[in-house]
Computed example of a mutant assay.
Amino acid sequence: MSDTPAQRLLLVHAHPDDESIGQGATMAKYVAEGRGVTLVTCTAGEMGEILVPELEHLAADRDDKLGEHRRGELADAMAELGVTDHRFLGGFGRFRDSGMKWHAEGYAIAADDIHDNAFWRADLTEAADLLVEIIREVRPQVLVTYDQFGGYGHPDHIQAHRVATYGAALAAVPSYRTDLGESWDVPKIYWGAMSESRMRAGLRALRAAGDTTSFEGMDPDGPLPHFVTPDDNLAAMVDAEDHVDKKMAALAAHKTQITMDGPFFALSNNVGSHAWGAEFYRIAKGEQGPLGDDGLETDLFAGIDS
């Protein structure tokens, strides 16, 4: 008798911490329910900003050891969520964090200087083939990644979207790279999203509590960044409020990237656990299954036969 879970989720993320921010509660919920959860991280986040002063020597322009440190943070975060299958695309160090800079209009773009081994420069087919092998091994019914803009424009997020999309397409072709395993067509693909109505409500609560610095520059009644999704474009909401403590513990494990007094914890403190316990998705492939009272799927596996 196989011990492989009947339902299997595969997530493709760019850097350590992206997974906990975007889908940490969903991951914890599905693990607790006995579903398979596999995380693929495409880089070690070597170019990330370091928020812990005593670890600033790890920066890329100094000791260049941040990636190895974040590898440990990711392991700690996955332990908090209960995820035991987490991998780096092509193995640790195969692709390097590309870094980024901010465009004048407030979204991320590629940095001026990019390492030769940067993920942004990776050959798309080469990187996709590495994911094809994982898809054919895990055989997930659901894949989660970013939208085509990578949420906020980060080149590694955009590249992760491309690799996940192309990799899923190639994995389904029976005659393609048979050495990478038997073909598998992922039934449903989602892009992680953030609800506009929930974000506006959260911002109002923060401002009403006197917090003017968290999510600085965002007006509850004004334009919001690209990563905030109009509710009409949402397809699913996983209510994992019972597991939000695990998500917050996973966020806290990414110590070099996320501070306890930062916006994620501020929103949770002022709005409550539902602020981060409900995670939203746009459907990119497949059909919606049965819908909940609010017109959204309540389970990413909805409508899929085990």
Score class of each variant (00 low, 15 high):
residue 42 C to I: 05
residue 97 D to H: 05
residue 271 V to M: 07
residue 147 D to S: 07
residue 168 A to S: 15
residue 33 E to G: 11
residue 4 T to D: 11
residue 266 A to C: 12
residue 152 Y to Q: 07
residue 192 G to D: 14
residue 23 Q to L: 11
residue 160 A to H: 03
residue 248 M to W: 04
residue 169 A to L: 12
residue 258 I to P: 01
residue 194 M to I: 13
residue 6 A to P: 08
residue 211 D to Y: 02
residue 233 N to W: 12
residue 245 D to Q: 12
residue 37 V to A: 08
residue 273 S to I: 09
residue 186 V to E: 03
residue 284 A to Y: 03
residue 181 G to N: 05
residue 141 Q to C: 09
residue 132 V to E: 01
residue 57 H to D: 14
residue 103 H to M: 04
residue 265 F to T: 05
residue 256 T to R: 01
residue 17 D to F: 07
residue 180 L to Y: 02
residue 137 E to V: 06
residue 215 F to G: 00
residue 229 T to H: 01
residue 132 V to N: 01
residue 3 D to E: 15
residue 204 R to W: 01
residue 250 A to K: 05
residue 40 V to T: 06
residue 174 P to Q: 08
residue 62 R to K: 13
residue 301 F to K: 02
residue 107 Y to F: 15
residue 292 G to F: 05
residue 283 I to L: 15
residue 21 I to M: 08
residue 295 G to T: 06
residue 61 D to R: 10
residue 294 D to H: 05
residue 127 A to S: 13
residue 43 T to H: 06
residue 228 V to W: 06
residue 31 V to T: 12
residue 107 Y to K: 07
residue 35 R to W: 12
residue 199 M to N: 00
residue 7 Q to T: 14
residue 111 A to Y: 07
residue 233 N to A: 14
residue 36 G to K: 07
residue 67 G to E: 00
residue 214 S to D: 04
residue 139 R to K: 15
residue 40 V to L: 12
residue 83 V to Q: 00
residue 1 M to N: 09
residue 162 R to Y: 12
residue 259 T to R: 14
residue 175 S to M: 09
residue 286 G to F: 03
residue 306 S to N: 12
residue 224 L to Y: 01
residue 208 A to I: 01
residue 293 D to Q: 10
residue 263 P to K: 13
residue 200 R to C: 01
residue 260 M to L: 15
residue 82 G to K: 03
residue 141 Q to R: 06
residue 113 D to Y: 06
residue 234 L to F: 04
residue 293 D to C: 01
residue 59 A to I: 05
residue 277 G to K: 05
residue 149 F to N: 11
residue 124 L to G: 04
residue 18 D to Q: 12
residue 271 V to S: 04
residue 181 G to C: 10
residue 228 V to L: 08
residue 218 M to F: 14
residue 131 L to S: 04
residue 38 T to V: 14
residue 158 I to V: 15
residue 226 H to N: 10
residue 283 I to T: 08
residue 104 A to V: 11
residue 35 R to K: 15
residue 106 G to F: 10
residue 137 E to P: 01
residue 306 S to L: 14
residue 253 A to P: 01
residue 82 G to P: 03
residue 159 Q to Y: 10
residue 250 A to Y: 04
residue 241 E to G: 07
residue 282 R to G: 09
residue 279 E to G: 11
residue 103 H to D: 14
residue 215 F to P: 00
residue 217 G to C: 07
residue 27 M to W: 01
residue 61 D to V: 08
residue 60 A to V: 14
residue 102 W to K: 07
residue 227 F to R: 02
residue 299 D to Q: 04
residue 183 S to H: 14
residue 26 T to N: 09
residue 168 A to E: 08
residue 23 Q to I: 14
residue 85 D to V: 01
residue 63 D to C: 11
residue 143 L to E: 02
residue 88 F to T: 00
residue 287 E to A: 13
residue 29 K to M: 09
residue 56 E to H: 13
residue 284 A to D: 10
residue 35 R to G: 07
residue 239 D to Q: 10
residue 43 T to V: 05
residue 259 T to K: 13
residue 128 A to L: 02
residue 305 D to P: 02
residue 123 D to S: 11
residue 85 D to W: 02
residue 299 D to W: 00
residue 76 D to A: 14
residue 10 L to T: 10
residue 43 T to N: 03
residue 22 G to P: 00
